[in-house]
């Protein structure tokens, strides 16, 4: 009953709408960033964009370098006899980079000029790096008899979407655990507000036990997170990102949500004022998530692996462990609340 009241008050203030909007914004913003970043670091993923490279230098190096550059996706070459016209073309924005190759003492020295301007610099440098790596491999192969260990042959190039890993290791955990964090924050606010307004006493006068009150406050908040998580997963599916092991993922979210909400409620009951409660709650959750990321079965990594389907049957046990820990923590809070006086 109290849980229903909590949800109704959330709805009345339209805060839930705002919460969803914030999450949507954060997700859109971060994917916007990543689409931008990734297309910089892997310009091949952006259609129809080429980097024009001017090449100068001595004849044999130029021929080899040119072959390597042309092999790389998204690069066009032009050869110049002399440095001056190449530099002029560079200054006229006709070339994105100028590369000069010369033999010096058994090595090839490559001097590369790139524009010091903006994000485009990054694109140019990334493309150039790929070409120069290919060139280095070819040159190294020619000198292989001088090497004590042969470099490993590279596996074939995979034409993979550069967003793939990010979607599962960053975007999905963000969408799954942001509602969890917000849920805990709601509980902190809700409990401290009842305390500050003195309405917790009123609730006590109603035929409700202390445990009932805690149940109502926490269940409403803890239940929202899995529902939202399911919503986000649905959206991702529509977007073509499939999530494996969905039931386990949702159980994981529910368990964490319970842990965080328990923490929030406990802090709100202990701390004297909302300021202190919110501050220690934010710090506490940051520590919780930051700290567990270091661990192999931390929730962020575990969620990513579950969603990718890169787990064996043992993952079920780990998720069950989380669920047990969450229920146990909540039980401790309930017992403690029954002992101490509220208000």
């Amino acid at each position: 009953m109290l849980a229903r009241r909590e949800i109704a008050s959330l709805r009345a203030e339209k805060t839930i709408v705002l919460a969803l909007l914030i999450q949507l914004f954060v997700a859109a913003f971060s994917s916007f960033l990543v689409v931008g970043l990734v297309s910089l670091y892997d310009p091949g993923s952006v259609e129809g964009y080429t980097v024009d490279v001017g090449i100068v230098g001595d004849e044999s190096s130029v021929a080899d370098l040119r072959a390597a550059v042309e092999e790389t996706r998204g690069l066009d070459t032009r050869t110049y006899d002399d440095a001056a016209p190449a530099r002029e073309a560079f200054d006229r924005n006709e070339l994105d980079a100028v590369v000069r190759a010369e033999q010096t003492g058994g090595r090839t020295t490559v001097t590369a000029l790139v524009p010091d301007s903006d994000v485009r610099t990054t694109v140019v440098v990334v493309q150039l790096r790929d070409a120069l790596r290919a060139y280095e491999r070819a040159e190294r192969a020619e000198r292989s008899e001088h090497l004590s260990a042969e470099p490993l042959a590279l596996p074939p190039e995979g034409r993979s979407s550069p967003y793939y890993g990010f979607t599962y290791t960053v975007l999905l955990p963000l969408l799954l655990f942001l509602p969890v964090f917000i849920g805990g924050s709601i509980v902190v606010d809700s409990v401290t507000e009842e305390r500050e307004r003195g309405t917790l006493e009123l609730l006590r006068a109603a035929p409700l036990s202390a445990a009932d009150i805690v149940d109502g406050k926490t269940l409403a908040a803890a239940g929202l997170a899995p529902v939202q998580a399911a919503l986000w997963v649905g959206l991702l599916e529509l977007n073509g990102t499939s999530v494996a092991n969905l039931p386990l993922v949702l159980v994981l979210v529910a368990a964490l949500s319970t842990v965080v909400v328990t923490l929030g409620a406990a802090l709100a009951l202990v701390a004297a004022e909302r300021r202190v409660a919110q501050l220690s709650y934010s710090l506490g959750t940051l520590v919780l998530f930051g700290g567990t990321t270091l661990h192999e079965d931390g929730p962020v990594g575990l969620a990513a692996r579950l969603a990718l389907g890169s787990v064996g049957p043992e993952a079920t046990l780990v998720v069950a462990g989380y669920a047990v820990a969450a229920v146990a923590g909540y039980a401790v809070l309930r017992r403690a609340v029954c002992r101490v006086d509220l208000g």
Binding site: D91, R107, A112, R143
Partner: peptide, 15 residues
């Protein structure tokens, strides 16, 4: 020189 046959000097230039 066999391990790293190519030495790159990358320069950022204002146009």
């Amino acid at each position: 020189s066999a391990a790293f046959p190519v030495v790159v000097d990358l320069r950022y230039v204002s146009r």
